[in-house]
Design a protein around this nucleic acid. Structure first.
Lengths: 168, 168
DNA sequence: GTTGATGCAAAATGTTTGCACATCC
DNA sequence: GGATGTGCAAACATTTTGCATCAAC
């Protein structure tokens, strides 16, 4: 049995508001700091820094836990790797980040925002270069597959492995 | 620059024949043992056992390296994990196995055969149950994306994360 | 003051590698 | 006999965890 999850949604592309499965876009009351405040969760400086980083860096960029760590260090912020892993997991469960597993090179994360709807990845298997694209057909195919087997869809991601022009 | 690869194709769904980028389906001369015999490669008992396992177990089942190891042990065959990793990588490069990375639970492998063309996976994020489906639209979407960015397509795989009926 | 979060170091995973020995042709 | 493959143990990379301490609320 799956646990009911306390989710968060992005408001004004900048703010997290907690919703416990029943609050919608309506409750646009609060600045960034209110985001992680509900349900006993805390907005700590570390979490704030990680959120800020993803917001600054924008969508379409995919960071590994290591890279998040390194970026923060450049900004003179040291957050332990353990905390980064814990926070990334949390933010994914809250729907703030999207986790992708491209076959080459481990798990990566990117911000999920309204400007940056469901999209898919074209990855060069040689140099790792990654391009994004959207496709309505893919979304439809995933939905149809879920329905036909009685599954409840969460997300579908198409990973296209290919060789980029420079590596051909 | 990408290395030219010595490939193999499956003949009669049972036999591997080596082809060095210029030999085709034509050379259907040989029983299973001839498969890994060319280009200095050898068909060793270990490789044979791994191949046999995937053939017996059939398509639609996705094994991790660990699981391959365990299955072989059940058959009273001990092959070191290192060899299993090396062999799986080899068989993927030869086109005999297909490697998939489902977000939950690491890399898995399945046999690739003519009965079992390009297909995609619907995975329950709770219990791991996996269903397969085919979709022409997905293949098309991957091809279009590659073309539009000038990439050379290798494969596209749609992973649908969902919750299965039992876990809802 | 409670509860939840952090940092550290250790452990657990998953995968790769160096090397001596075995084996296939 | 030379090239290729295996097993082992060690190395590695990545991620998770136990625990004492710290800090948000």
């Amino acid at each position: 049995m799956l646990q009911p999850l306390s989710l968060a949604i992005i408001i004004e592309n900048n703010v997290l508001a907690d919703m416990t499965l029943n609050v919608g876009y309506g409750s646009r009351s609060s600045p960034l700091e209110l985001g992680l405040h509900k349900n006993g969760r805390r907005l700590t400086p570390q979490r704030k820094k990680i959120l800020d980083l993803f917001q600054r860096i924008g969508s379409g960029i995919h960071l590994s836990a290591e890279e998040v760590h390194a970026h923060l260090l450049q900004n003179k912020t040291r957050v332990s790797l353990a905390t980064i892993y814990r926070t990334l997991r949390l933010l994914v469960r809250m729907g703030f980040l999207h986790e992708l597993e491209l076959s080459e090179g481990g798990h990566r994360f990117e911000i999920l925002s309204k400007d940056n709807p469901d999209h898919h990845h074209l990855v060069c298997i040689n140099c790792g270069r990654t391009e994004e694209f959207e496709s309505e057909e893919v979304v439809t195919a995933g939905r149809k597959a879920s329905e036909s087997k009685g599954f409840k869809l969460i997300e579908s991601t198409l990973n296209v492995r290919a060789i980029c022009p420079e590596c051909i």
